[in-house]
Design a protein around this nucleic acid. Structure first.
Lengths: 348, 348
DNA sequence: TAGGATTGTGTAAGCGTGTACAATCATCAT
DNA sequence: ATGATGATTGTACACGCTTACACAATCCTA
């Protein structure tokens, strides 16, 4: 406590701004300053409250002068409403999740909701992490990550109905969910590729623990089966470019395929690079490659990927719609179904 | 395939788990159940407290049984410590920010700190948004976005010393900052390109409101000047691929240049694509292109970009270090300087 | 065995809000 | 003129937790 340094010892430096290190002022102190009770302060800051408009103006002016803002923590404790939303995500390094997240955050901000971000991918104890977030009494939870089970989410957030993104039809009454279905689009894609005369398909899947990945694979497997075909080679990466690149090299070296379906776009881009630069195969002439997600990057000239694409705007709209319905009637659980579409590039 | 669920109530579905919609139990209620006072409950959950280990075990067991977790909002109100960190970002759609953010979030989570994410780019009233976050009594603020001024950050977070990322040397005692300097690396890059015989440089800058962008340009302009050169053409985008693509086309059509420096990697990739696909110029033979950021994608085979790269790990380490120093001694403000490095690809 | 130190627990007072209820006051119809 | 009415504001408590303080029980030392 002896060797304090910095601006503390400069009482002269009083600019017009609120000085740093000044303890935050409370509503009771502001009440003194404005000559009213703290209840009136509170009313001045909640638009629905009945309060004389002259009083309100005066209070707001004094508040501005002293840099007062109501303490959201105290308000949350009282209200039983925190205006916080937990977003449980695998990792935002993946462009697909980053793009969706970006959109969602904007939409939440517009509604004065603040997102708490939880990244599960590299966290050894996901549940502990999510449990921590749940103690902040978040108003809503959106689970993007398929590495945390729906039942765990329900258990941890007793009081909040989670919004789950999945590819399975769910019948759990305790959650609302958005189901992504790409079977139709996968069928179109397979139809086109088979129509081009290709018969030997490989699948390059993402993380093994991901059950969304299994579902994605099933969409294509079903489409192949309808035509009397199956995957003749398989490999498994981790959704990263590097893994797509490496696994594609291995797969192409050990198996004769003329088409590869990849678990996501980033891996598909890696696979294209591997095929062209390492194996010297022409894409799409010698080898068709298909991604999944429909990220912006897939449409760049340098990639121009054919991909099973999700409608990102509709997706985020759905999440926001579910949040709004939960705010209205906390009781009901809802489900939304979203269909994917084929986005045609030059790689298949 | 038959699923298209609306809002369906299913009251019979009672599993063995903690039932949904059960109101969260409080410490006082748990105290009754465990036959102790609520103070003892609190002690059981704070490791430093003096409490009999038998009592603690019993309480923790009863707590688990009833799904009790201390309410972090109430705890924060009491402690004056929320364990929340505000991350003020432009947009996470940009891979550079997404990668840094990803790393940082992991590091915060390891320290039991929870990030509140604020995206400023498309938000009309940034300050209002940030003000909202400040009411949550966040323990720390990290400002990545150069669209919000340092002084605004200080004003809004009176009580918290913001951590600012900038490219200017700051002498504001109220903030800690991390300064990114790329002048040395820019000089190396220019040296190499000039050594290759190129003399006509163009600059493709990012968002006009960004002053980091100005600084980046200055690094290269200075390096050119040292060699008696200047930028002979300029254009301005918004850090996106599309803008990089479009502006590069325009720039290349109206000016004769043999090298383009871009404000970030994503724009550089767009410029490369434009040069090759639209203008039919060979990169790097006819035209050198350089990016900035050093995102993972820049190193992909399909791009193999030469770029002025930041050390992302060191960057995030610095932020974490500043946070830890602030936790230790809230009084002092600190500064950290990070040098960029040149990362050589095949585009220059 | 006494007296102090140590340990474990309860009591009560906040932390900064929102809000039900009471109180005040001006307005207005009778 | 008077009581009813509605608009404002103050008072007091609750939200769920932590912690200073008090107090009882146990332990140690001489």
């Amino acid at each position: 406590m002896e060797n304090r340094s910095g601006s503390v010892l400069q009482p002269d430096d009083t600019s017009l701004r609120v000085p740093m290190n000044k303890k935050r002022i409370t509503s009771r102190e502001l009440a003194k300053l404005a000559g009213v009770s703290s209840a009136t302060i509170s009313r001045a800051f909640s638009p629905e409250s009945r309060i004389g408009s002259a009083t309100r103006d005066r209070i707001l002016s004094v508040a501005r002068e002293h840099g007062y803002q109501p303490n959201a923590i105290a308000r949350s404790l009282n209200n039983q409403r925190s205006r916080l939303v937990a977003l449980v995500v695998n990792a935002i390094g993946n462009p697909c999740e980053a793009e969706d997240l970006q959109l969602l955050v904007y939409r939440l901000q517009d509604r004065q909701l603040l997102p708490i971000l939880l990244c599960c991918a590299d966290h050894e104890d996901r549940l502990q992490l999510i449990r921590l977030a749940s103690t902040y009494q978040v108003d809503h939870v959106v689970v993007f990550s398929d590495t945390v089970s729906m039942q765990d989410a329900v258990d941890i957030f007793h009081t909040t109905r989670p919004i789950i993104v999945s590819s399975e039809p769910l019948d759990n009454a305790d959650v609302s969910h958005i189901r992504i279905d790409g079977s139709e689009a996968a069928d179109q894609i397979i139809n086109k590729i088979v129509g081009d005369g290709r018969r030997r398909f490989g699948y390059l899947s993402g993380t093994a623990t991901s059950w969304i990945d299994k579902k994605r694979k099933a969409w294509f497997a079903d489409a192949l089966e309808k035509r009397g075909l199956t995957f003749v080679a398989e490999a498994s990466g981790d959704y990263s470019y590097d893994s797509g690149f490496k696994e594609a090299v291995l797969l192409l070296r050990r198996a004769k395929v003329d088409a590869i379906i990849c678990g996501n776009d980033v891996m598909a881009i890696g696979a294209v690079d591997a095929a062209r630069k390492v194996l010297g195969r022409r894409v799409p002439e010698d080898l068709a490659i298909v991604g999944q997600d429909g990220i912006a990057m897939a449409a760049w000239e340098s990639h121009d990927l054919t991909t099973l694409s999700q409608d990102h705007v509709a997706f985020v709209d759905s999440i926001v719609a579910l949040i709004e319905r939960h705010e209205k009637d906390g009781d009901a659980s809802h489900g939304i179904l979203l269909e994917c579409t084929a986005r045609w590039g030059s790689t298949a």
